[in-house]
């Protein structure tokens, strides 16, 4: 049996306090906003480091180029998926959007272990690889924070999946930025550190971001 009077009282109360609202921008426009911030950081890094080392690495080892492409596409698709999932009624299948590019990113990075290293380029020791870990995590924190802040204005009904997308987007964006100033050949320790950093960022987002998003 419906408790109609109770609902009517609530509807009247909600109607009485109705104020005009500014409609949320479409998800792709909001994702673009976040990507512009990432692109601005990339421009600053290019300004400082130049593109020659990065291009030299890609020519000498095309798999690194493919991995970088995978990371950039993952950042774009995961950010778009996060903003899509944050709007009620959008298909949950958006969560699969970043998967192909993430497979390319991780797969091509992993292939780097199998080939001979680039002549004349230093291989990172564990200490240097630690710097990569710190770089990815320290760029991911503000990028994740910004995404979560933007997503909280929407209504993420699936906070955990959305948080995975946030983690993936910010970790892949940070890895893409790292590519600009990473003048080393990829070694197994380095790739392990990259994988560890991405895992930390994604898990931290699920643990903390999920909670922050579920209040929305």
């Amino acid at each position: 049996m419906s408790d109609a009077p109770r609902h009517e009282a609530l509807i009247d109360a909600l109607g009485a306090e109705l104020t005009p609202v500014r409609r949320l921008l479409p998800p792709w426009r909001r994702a673009l906003g976040w990507l512009v911030v990432v692109a601005a950081v990339a421009v600053l890094l290019f300004f400082h480091y130049g593109a020659s080392t990065m291009l030299h690495r890609w020519v000498a080892a095309p798999d690194l180029g493919w991995a970088a492409l995978g990371a950039v596409v993952t950042a774009v698709t995961a950010a778009l998926a996060a903003f899509m999932l944050a709007v009620p009624g959008r298909s949950p299948f958006w969560m699969w959007l970043p998967v192909p590019s993430a497979v390319l990113w991780i797969g091509a990075s992993g292939l780097g272990c199998l080939r001979a290293h680039i002549p004349g380029m230093p291989v990172l020791d564990l200490h240097g690889a630690n710097d990569c870990l710190i770089f990815i995590i320290s760029f991911s924190i503000p990028l994740s924070g910004l995404l979560i802040w933007l997503l909280r204005r929407a209504c993420p009904l699936r906070p955990t999946v959305t948080a995975v997308m946030v983690g993936l987007a910010s970790a892949s964006a940070s890895a893409s930025l790292l590519e600009i100033c990473h003048n080393f050949d990829a070694a197994a320790t380095d790739l392990m550190m990259h994988a560890l950093a991405v895992a930390i960022v994604v898990v931290a987002n699920v643990l903390m971001g999920g909670r922050l998003l579920s209040r929305a």
Binding site: L10, L18, R23, L24, P88, A154, C155
Partner: peptide
């Protein structure tokens, strides 16, 4: 569920795309 949904609808009505 009706009450909680109505309250949520009110809070997130800006997320609806006509």
């Amino acid at each position: 569920v009706v009450q909680e949904t109505l309250l949520t609808v009110h809070r997130v009505r800006h997320t609806f795309d006509p």
